[in-house]
Write a protein that binds this DNA or RNA. Structure first.
Lengths: 340, 340
DNA sequence: TGTCAACACGAAATCGGTTTCGTAAAATGA
DNA sequence: TCATTTTACGAAACCGATTTCGTGTTGACA
């Protein structure tokens, strides 16, 4: 790379001190108009840009927010990033994005690298593997060091920090209730294994809606999809039962279930209804398009970054972790019958 | 934030100089075993982490790569990010991601912020607005400053830097030829306005395949979709013509076209074939699933970051800009008839 | 003409590390 | 015993900015 022009260069070239140059560029009254003009002209001519590292070191802040996500090729997470970036950008921050690839080890690594002063704060959604192992010491260390941290979507109570989540229980409840209201009473639930707690919460909503209606939960109608194995085959099994609707905790499961239903000859939505989670492109463009719980990823990202920046900029008085719950809503499409 | 522990703290606490601490932690032979042990133990106990800003300033490198994308909620771009991150991570680099939102102004801003020393190099895909205005001075300035830059996917010849692109002409050719071979002779092309040159290149491939077959290009079969207006309505117009296949330059257009075809009563693929571009989730999960040109975003990201890091780390001898072309291939699915 | 304030600028400290060079004390060798 | 080499460490420069404090020169005023 070409030799960068620094304050020192300008000072030497113009026969003044570095302090004078610095003050001149910041328009200090201490410097005479003549000198200021000369220095500014020189700086402009050679396209001088202050070295941000030097500034960051001196000011002890980077105006950078670290973001660690389990995945990126994923509609919900990329929407959240967009929200984070928008919110950050408005406040003059930039984002550094890393991925854990759902791996515990990579998450620990990323956290270590980002917590050595390169960012002012962190926004994280926990990796699946970490949720399984339940080892959260790397997060607790961070909290101990008092590095501002916001968790979103996949969170755990053990870690004392700000959190942003969707109302998963409520969402599961809403979806299930909608299906019940349109007279689908034999509703299968396609969810994740227990350790991914968003799945568990959505399931609670499902169960609550059923029991309100006086229907007992039939475990045979609940499939916990193990992602390492063939997803379609696992979902197909639930069709051995007598069912007339499916509530799936994500888009892929919903689309897969609908496909199977169509293959089995069901007419969607007349004979069979489907509701998914996450309002992504699959739901929008499959045919029929799929009714989903909209997760408001953009909103989540914005909220997360807002809380984080507040935490960064306000000298922490008494630290009271916040939990922001974003309510989700049903986006009606063609895979369900109109509400009665 | 809690007061960070620095080398100075350790030095004072242990009654040695900062140089001794630094050397001890780096396991220098100049320091006695005893002292080293003492210092290391202290550092470990208080969880000392060297401040990365200080290191970056001293070493004049950040091990950071800036990435500027037009959009993020987009299958292709998020796949590229994944590739970039993987490649970067392997070489000990991290990525800083910004978005231009297809806006010229934001692109200029991002470029300015990232080029003040905060990153060692940049990977960029140009915003649509910039492609329209054709003002590339911000990129040229970067090249003049000799900041390593790699453009991908949306590139322009004017900017003298490394580039990674897919073989858009070849891809358009392959797709069109496949349709011709299965006896679809009245192929509509749904593409972007001219300034987005990937669209133009894919169109060239389309035209070449047609003329090889002795079919003259019918302009009425070519739709240039203006994204600000209603996409579906624009695509619908081409169905006024007598057509039996569609080649679309992206997923959304392909899915929309297929939907229209089905609404008009065509049987896909028996009576009507569809080929899209970008192998995303829509193509995979729509029904019938859509045959596409796979763009190999992951591969692109990896290649881009590899070239960039090479440029960063090799003291630029003679600078000869590289252009890497990634060949794309047809991913056959249900929206086309089997190859004859 | 002497005093003091205002002006315009420079020296040096600081941020948190690394690295070169210098040196006192101990060890070695003749 | 004296000269020389190691050993083990510290002082200081450096990366590129900002900022405090100090100071020489003017000009104003008594």
């Amino acid at each position: 790379m070409k030799q960068k022009i620094t304050i020192k260069t300008i000072a030497k070239e113009l026969g003044v001190s570095t302090s004078t140059v610095s003050k001149a560029l910041r328009d200090s009254h201490e410097i005479s108009i003549d000198t200021k003009d000369k220095i500014k002209a020189y700086a402009a001519m050679f396209n001088y840009k202050p070295n941000s590292l030097a500034l960051q070191l001196r000011n002890q802040k980077t105006k950078l927010i670290g973001v660690i996500l389990p995945r990126i090729v994923h509609h919900f997470f990329s929407t959240v990033i967009k929200g984070i970036e928008q919110g950050a950008s408005e406040k003059g921050y930039h984002i550094m994005v890393c991925f854990s690839n759902e791996s515990y080890k990579k998450e620990v690594e990323n956290l270590k690298v980002l917590s050595n002063g390169s960012v002012d704060g962190l926004i994280v959604s926990i990796a699946k593997e970490t949720l399984e192992t339940k080892d959260f010491t790397h997060f607790k260390d961070l909290v101990n060091e008092e590095i501002p941290l916001v968790l979103f979507d996949r969170v755990v109570d053990e870690i004392l920090c700000d959190k942003v989540v969707v109302d998963d229980v409520g969402a599961g409840y809403k979806a299930t209730k909608y299906l019940l209201n349109q007279n689908s009473l034999k509703i299968a639930l396609i969810t994740t294994p227990e350790h991914v707690n968003v799945g568990t919460l959505r399931r609670q909503g499902y169960e609550r809606a059923l029991s309100e209606k006086g229907i007992s939960v039939n475990k045979k109608l609940i499939i916990e999809v193990e992602e390492k194995e063939n997803i379609k085959a696992q979902i197909e099994r639930v069709f051995d039962q007598d069912i007339d609707a499916v509530f799936a905790v994500n888009e892929i499961y919903a689309a897969t279930a609908m496909r199977i239903a169509k293959e089995k000859g069901y007419k969607v939505p007349q004979e069979f209804s489907v509701i998914g989670f996450t309002d992504g492109l699959i739901s929008e463009y499959s045919s029929p398009s799929i009714t989903t719980i909209a997760q408001h990823g953009l909103e989540m990202g914005k909220q997360a970054v807002e809380v984080l920046i507040e935490r960064i900029e306000k000298e922490a008085e008494v630290y009271e972790p916040k939990k922001i719950v974003i309510s989700s809503n049903l986006k009606l499409r063609e895979s369900t019958k109109p509400s009665s």
